[in-house]
Nucleic acid binder design. Structure first.
Lengths: 277, 277
DNA sequence: TTGACAAATGACCGATTAGTCATTAGTATA
DNA sequence: TATACTAATGACTAATCGGTCATTTGTCAA
């Protein structure tokens, strides 16, 4: 488990320096200080490595954002907090941002394309949720346009973090973009992305979390878990899925146990979706 | 010269399908119906091909936008026309957009990184020029932020053209984004990209067109040119640079001769810059 | 110390790569 | 037709790739 992480981190460095195709397995193992054979004990192929990396690096990004969006109840500050968390992440993980937001070689590999598209869709959902909470019925059909503007702001300003390391005032940036978002939300009159267009652009079909997929995810993580509270929480949640017993409060509590540790953010996120919490 | 174009076009197809590193010279020559040796008669290396492609495809994009920006005197419509030309280009050349705006492997090759950065800077200049004409002193230090928003809109909505081929109402999109831009320009109060930040983000130093570089560019093109009017225009402009004789009107006329043919857009653009026209 | 097992190694394999070059085909001039 | 020249070919090379596997190393309990 630790070996996998080591490989993923060193691989990320190399990918962000040279690109995916231009980086050989040999180079990765050299930087890790391990043999080529050892690499293939952790990952079956080079492609499997990159798929794991997408999960490893994007899951945290998605869940962090979602947590801010759903955890900030103050309408005055939620937009600012949203942008702050986004750009803080870009700042802290500029290498992975360089790799996954720019190197779209990945888009030519179908499995990865769907994976990345799915994560992007999750991000879109979080943003839409935020907009719905913030503006409720004021926006109506305009909310998809506002979402696209927000994504555009992210992409445009993220460059500042990805391609240079100058010190930037995150607070000021977040305030500036929050204001711009609010202005657009209030004054826009000409929509482009209308409701009838939405089904076409939200490519990955809106799928709910399937019971089997979730059970499998939990099962996997029980084996890798040693911490007692987390392990117990996962086991209880697993039982709850197979045989519903407890009320919402207990379930939410168990999920919150997991949310405390970044390593379990993704499980918490997916499980909460399953239980509609 | 025609062979070069053939190779660049087929290579673009393959790059947009598979990515740059994943495409072999062999595959390119097979799709062209030529031998491997013939490829190396046109380009010294695979890298030289991609450098030529960046010039070939981005020059036209940049000059098209600049022409719209500087050629539309109606303040009411310039923003709409700007967006229309941008997205029309994305629509017509979605393959090259996929390659050059997404596959940033190129960013790991230093020469290409500087080239692409330089073209992006040209685009920024055109946008800033448009904003200065439109809002003059109203914007002041806010203009850089508005430029970043425009670029964000472009990046965000371009996806619709790059990753799908559904029919989209360009007119409606342009109107929608023009309104958003105008709203931001009028209501924003919190800037982020302040004047003192600008020197740091505009990485490539603001360089004027150098006399020698321009002479070399013209020289190169004389050899590849057969059309009489264009060839004569280029030769006269070359003489004019070395030995100024004519007035602005004649110079502008000669440049306009070149602008009529897309193949000479870039020369026209650069020469106009040199003569401050 | 021994034996059993897992972890780790790196020489090795077939496939593929970018790039070369002796050879051939095609064309224009004399 | 003979000559001279360029355009085009594709077999070839040396290097590198992802991936394998017989072997070695390390770590336990007995």
């Amino acid at each position: 488990m630790l070996k996998k992480q080591l490989i993923m981190e060193k691989a990320l460095e190399l990918f962000s320096e040279q690109g995916f195709e231009a980086t050989s397995v040999q180079q990765i193992t050299e930087r890790c200080g391990i043999s080529k054979g050892a690499f293939y004990l952790s990952f079956k192929t080079k492609d499997e490595l990159v798929i794991s990396m997408v999960d490893y690096y994007l899951q945290q990004f998605i869940t962090d954002v979602d947590q801010v969006v759903r955890g900030t109840y103050n309408k005055e500050t939620v937009l600012v907090e949203f942008y702050k968390s986004i750009f803080q992440a870009f700042k802290d993980h500029s290498a992975s941002a360089r790799v996954f937001f720019n190197e779209k070689v990945f888009l030519t590999k179908k499995e990865l394309f769907h994976k990345i598209t799915a994560y992007e869709a999750e991000m879109s959902k979080s943003i839409l949720y935020m907009l719905e909470q913030l503006y409720q019925d004021q926006l109506k059909e305009m909310k998809y346009d506002v979402m696209y503007c927000i994504k555009g702001f992210m992409k445009s300003y993220a460059e500042l973090f990805i391609f240079s390391d100058m010190p930037l005032d995150l607070e000021q940036l977040a305030k500036s973009l929050a204001e711009k978002t609010d202005i657009i939300a209030h004054h826009t009159t000409i929509p482009f992305i209308t409701a009838d267009l939405v089904p076409f652009i939200a490519k990955p079909c809106e799928e709910d979390v399937s019971k089997d997929a979730l059970l499998q995810l939990l099962e996997q993580n029980i084996n890798h878990t040693e911490d007692s509270i987390e392990k117990e929480s996962i086991e209880l949640l697993k039982q709850e899925i197979e045989n519903p017993t407890y009320g919402k409060a207990i379930i939410k509590g168990l999920i919150e146990n997991l949310r405390l540790d970044p390593a379990y953010h993704w499980i918490a996120y997916v499980t909460a979706k399953y239980f509609n919490i």
